[in-house]
Amino acid sequence: MLRNTDVIELWKESENLMKRVLIVDDASFMRMAIKIILQKSGFEVIGEAENGVVGIKKYQELQPDLVTMDITMPEMTGIEALKEITKFDPKAKVVMVSAMGQQAMVREAIVNGAKSFIVKPFKEDHVVETLNKILEM
């Protein structure tokens, strides 16, 4: 018979399997869209941030497995936040969320340690594939 503690262990284990994601985006619509996709695909969204400054703070607090990072944000752009996050944790896995026509910025992000990028408007399978590939790294 399963004891309570076993159940908790099992539960913890399955929690560990769920990859923990932090979403950084100034548009609540985008955060929601990404969150819906991720939750459907077995990711756990552990935090959301509405600008770069909050994003960095949340990263330090939550130490997520993955970060999706919008580029254009008030207070601090995604690229600045990316730089700070990789400074804090060089192994950070940050995926940029870019709009079409922001190629230069995506390149800058890659040079600064972004692992990959998603292009808005994104499709569900694109997002999931991008994140899964990064987790394999």
Partner: peptide, 11 residues
């Protein structure tokens, strides 16, 4: 920029 992105997502 934000509206553009959201609107594109919603088609």
């Amino acid at each position: 920029h934000t509206i553009k992105g959201s609107a594109a997502m919603m088609c």
